[in-house]
């Protein structure tokens, strides 16, 4: 009996991966870089004004304000959720800020804080609704709040414009620090911050875990609902930051600003490699995708192509970005 008893050879588990060229280059980000280069080359080919620094810089500003929201949106999508109310949140936060300053006569600083608070509260409401009513999907909840927030913005401002902000407020939209647009600095800082949070901290790890398997995450002691509410709040907060930059750049606001922002933002995240099935995505890819979509839009504007054309191209890119990893998998199986 004794010799039959199982004995285990001591097994060691490797903790270093050998270097592999395949792993280094077989990444979606390289593909995105190629697409970006292609877009830039194409742009300079069709229009001599494309690669000219001042115009490129101004073109960048146009899409970079909404791109601030792409970071929390990536987190939300990694957790298998979606938030289509962010455009409405931008509008509502902006309208609240403008009304408090122009009609209520509050100092602009207070109005800005109120703007941020409005955005955060909108996000908080989304998050709470989604975790409390688990049978409702995030699409439905945020579709509801998308209409709701926009509606409130219309009630406050009644389809009018509000503006006349103090001069210093223009800094957000038009200001430069050492010759670099302030918005670009904020974008880069946020990219770095979200990159660190998502890829290096326990919070980011939990976000990925939830996206991969929410039940197992809960069983492993992760407070899934808490993480979700925080991330939705972040999306609302960043929408409010976008509202500040956008309102500053335009000099006035209306309840219909930032319409369809959510689609561009979701497209940026998805093209950047955030898996629509959840659990996957990297900030670097998302950043490259922001510039691809942004410059595509800018370039097409320069050569006076109708905006519908842009939609067609972004749609095709999106489908391609979702299909290519699948194609790879299919080929592997054969």
């Amino acid at each position: 009996m004794e010799q039959k008893k199982q004995t285990y050879q001591p097994r060691t588990l490797e903790t270093n991966l050998p270097f592999s060229w395949k792993r280094l280059f077989f990444q979606w980000e390289w593909m995105l870089l190629l697409i970006l280069v292609a877009v830039l080359l194409l742009g300079s080919y069709v229009s001599p004004y494309f690669l000219n620094y001042p115009s490129l810089r101004d073109g960048t500003m146009v899409f970079l304000d909404k791109a601030l929201i792409v970071f929390p949106m990536a987190m939300i999508m990694i957790m298998r959720d979606i938030d289509i109310s962010v455009g409405s949140t931008v509008a509502l936060s902006s309208v609240v800020m403008a009304t408090l300053y122009t009609s209520a006569g509050l100092p602009m600083e207070v109005a800005i804080i109120a703007c941020l608070a409005t955005g955060a509260i909108c996000g908080l409401i989304n998050g709470l609704l989604i975790v409390k009513f688990k049978e409702l999907s995030a699409v439905i909840v945020t579709l509801g709040t998308m209409i709701l927030y926009r509606g409130i913005a219309y009630i406050i401002l009644e389809d009018q414009a509000a503006g006349g902000f103090p001069e210093w407020f223009g800094f957000f939209g038009w200001g430069y620090v050492f010759g670099i647009p302030f918005l670009l600095i904020v974008f880069a800082a946020l990219a770095l911050l979200f990159g660190i949070v998502l890829h290096k901290t326990t919070f980011g790890r939990k976000v990925f875990a939830i996206g991969n398997n929410p039940t197992a995450s809960r069983f492993s002691g992760i407070k899934v609902d808490k993480v979700k509410v925080i991330v939705f709040m972040l999306a609302g907060l960043l929408a409010a930051v976008t509202a500040i930059f956008l309102t500053s750049r335009m000099g006035s606001t209306r309840p219909n600003i930032a319409t369809m922002y959510e689609l561009d933002i979701i497209a940026m995240a998805a093209l950047g490699g955030v898996s629509t099935a959840g659990g996957k995505g990297r900030v670097l890819g998302v950043v490259i995708a922001v510039f691809i979509i942004g410059y595509l839009q800018y370039g097409l504007g320069l050569i006076n192509l109708p905006s519908q054309m842009f939609l067609i191209i972004v749609g095709a890119l999106l489908i391609l970005s979702v299909a290519i990893p699948k194609l790879g998998g299919m080929m592997k199986r054969k």
Binding site: Y8, T12, L13, E14, T15
Partner: peptide
């Protein structure tokens, strides 16, 4: 991961 993986004798080549 290595310590506890080896403790329970997981049969695999690496912790990755």
């Amino acid at each position: 991961a290595k310590e506890f993986g080896e403790k329970v004798h997981i049969k695999a080549t690496s912790i990755f």
